[in-house]
């Protein structure tokens, strides 16, 4: 590939306070996300996936390692990559529409254009009709969808999604997979998707990274050479099943190490 990777993580170390002094949550994590690529990351709970996304988004400095965006070392990345956190982090005093719109135009005086972009994003995630609801009046899955809409509408060229479909039923989840793929295609963005669901990883991603627990680093990388668009029905195809078994095998071995 001639273009520089959209995100290139090189030998990243992040320490956290543990019971017996500092522990390395991420220990030599390296990965790349090419422009226009969807990359999934799976790994046992607590292996540092959310921590990685926080560091990539620029919320936290690593103790060592380099993060390059489009080939440039960018220690100050805030605002360059849109993060959808594991918890929705919606502003309770703003309606669903205003929560999405705040990532479109960062001012109080929004143009009608910003507002219709926010409306479109809400409609994409199946929430038209709920734009005037406050977050407390939405279900967990609906709040997650508002957060997804906020990320998709942000205009950032890379999205960091932390278990974006965790609280959804199978049908809504499949519908949102299609919407994410469509938004990704139309914007041409790059996506790093953290998930616990192997089917989801294979349906959406071009490549899947598997991360290990303590030390948190990439232990396997599996390319998904299936044509797009992929459907829920594809999950029973032999290639799909083989990929899933391969991932399950790697995951099981990381558990054994831990």
């Amino acid at each position: 590939m001639s273009e520089a990777p959209r995100i290139a993580v090189d030998d990243l170390w992040v320490g956290r306070d543990g019971r017996d002094g500092p522990i390395d949550v991420l220990a030599g994590m390296s990965l790349v996300v090419e422009p226009g690529e969807i990359v999934a990351m799976v790994g046992p709970s607590g292996c540092g996936k959310s921590t990685l996304l926080g560091v990539l988004a620029g919320l936290e400095a690593p103790s060592a390692g380099v993060v390059r965006l489009d080939g440039v070392d960018r220690p100050d990345r805030l605002g360059g990559l849109a993060l959808m956190p594991q918890r929705d982090a919606l502003l309770p005093w703003r309606t669903a529409l205003d929560n999405v719109a705040c990532s479109v135009g960062w001012s109080s005086a929004r143009s009608g254009d910003d507002e219709s972009r926010a409306m479109d994003a809400l409609a994409r995630v199946g929430l038209d009709g709920f734009e005037d609801h406050y977050p407390h009046a939405l279900s967990g899955g609906m709040r997650q969808r508002v957060a997804l809409a906020r990320t998709l509408a942000s205009g950032a060229r890379a999205w960091l999604l932390d278990e974006p479909f965790g609280a959804l039923d199978a049908l809504t989840r499949a519908a949102l997979h299609r919407e994410l793929e469509r938004a990704w295609r139309s914007v041409g963005s790059s996506v790093l998707l953290v998930t616990h669901d192997l089917d989801e990883a294979i349906v959406l991603a071009d490549r899947v990274y598997v991360s290990s627990l303590r030390p948190g680093r990439i232990v396997a990388e599996v390319a998904v050479a299936l044509g797009r668009p992929r459907a829920a029905a594809d999950t029973t195809r032999p290639e799909f099943v083989r990929l899933k078994e391969e991932l399950l095998g790697v995951l099981a071995s990381t558990e054994a190490v831990a």
Partner: peptide, 17 residues
């Protein structure tokens, strides 16, 4: 909740915002 401001920052909001 610090998470609220953090997310806004990753989406491009300024400190003042």
């Amino acid at each position: 909740d610090p998470a609220l401001g953090r997310v806004a920052r990753t989406l491009g909001a300024s400190r003042m915002w």
